[in-house]
Design a protein around this nucleic acid. Structure first.
Lengths: 197, 197
DNA sequence: CTACATTGTGAACACCGCATACATTCGAAG
DNA sequence: CTTCGAATGTATGCGGTGTTCACAATGTAG
């Protein structure tokens, strides 16, 4: 009856793909392992062979999100000028754009609830990405376009502003008049706070 | 057998209270109407008389959160000096303190998922609170301690930085060396970006 | 070819949110 | 005070969920 062989071949990746699709369309809360299995045409217990719990599936999604975010950030820096203002602008728009395009996923990534062992991998992936921000700031400092100071202590406020703006925009809590110039204003304020004396 | 009368007397408020407690202790996902009813000693369907759905209960919690946040912010401004630096510092610590002390609740407040009619009330409560921030910035401008500009466009980056820092801190994504001076650095950067030319 | 590890199945369990029909209590109008 | 409707709590059931277990089918290494 079923044309599908007994073994699916690559259930894990198809689970992740479909999960991310439903995540995007209906949010994290509406994600159901059983429904996923039903869509793929596999028994309800099959997913548990690849993800020992629903949380594990979510952790895997979050991990992939960080990797893609890191890639998007790197890409934004590849074809842009060398001035700090340009590079920051590109990185900021890459980050906020990614967040707006993957709201539920980003929510997952920065969610508090992660299984302890996944937390390690997540922290690592997040670190691999935030290093790009350190490097961005560091380069600006070397060019004399960013004020002096320990890179982490200069980078944190920058990143916080971006993260905060993206979160506010996604939550729909921004009145229209703020959303319009919102990102521009945030970027401008970051440049102002980074300026050397 | 039961000493409790047939009518509980104030089920709605006790539901909210217990819900917030479990929210704090075990997170939003672990919140169950049935378990709440069990704890209070009432039938599983009883809560539905006061909150037509689980989402309605969550909306009510979020609403209360905004009100308490507004109150905490107002309190932070009552017994503090008049300089912008002092007032911003107080408001910032009030906001970040509130989110750290009520992480899951704040998550709920800024979550995307709200029933349409609750969104209105939520937006209103959020507005009542954000007006305090506008006023904070406006007062700073009148004192000549904050750069000129439309209040919304000056306030947004300020609030974004605070919101973003709180989110990062809560998510545990901050390395130790950042978390230490983190808030201080964010506040300093806000002051820098607000400074007149 | 045989043994073992991997992957998918089927049934079961204990939950959950929600809806419906019914019971009890409260409060106001007559 | 009685009555009668509204508010509140109960009992039960439905369809859904995540997770676990024993078992079956398939792949793979020796």
């Amino acid at each position: 009856m079923k044309n599908r062989p007994y073994h699916h071949g690559d259930l894990a990746t198809e689970l992740l793909a479909r999960a991310e699709q439903t995540l995007r369309e209906k949010g994290a809360a509406a994600l159901s392992l059983r429904e996923l299995a039903r869509e793929i045409g596999v028994s309800p217990a099959a997913p548990s062979r690849h993800f020992k719990s629903k949380q594990a599936l979510l952790d895997a999604l979050a991990l992939g999100g960080f990797e893609r975010l890191a890639e998007a950030t790197a890409a934004s820096q590849r074809e842009v000028g060398e001035s700090f203002a340009e590079r920051l602008d590109a990185a900021a728009r890459a980050y906020v754009g990614f967040t707006l395009a993957n709201a539920a996923l980003v929510d997952l990534m920065f969610s508090v609830k992660h299984s302890p062992e996944a937390s390690e991998a997540l922290r690592a992936a997040a670190g691999r990405w935030s290093e790009q921000l350190f490097e961005l700031i560091g380069a600006g400092q070397r060019r004399g376009e960013v004020r002096e100071g320990a890179p982490e202590r200069v980078t944190l406020p920058v990143f916080a502003a971006l993260h905060g703006y993206a979160g506010l925009a996604v939550s729909g809590m921004l009145p229209a008049e703020m959303a319009e110039h919102g990102l521009d204003d945030v970027i401008a304020s970051i440049l102002r706070q980074c300026r050397p004396e």
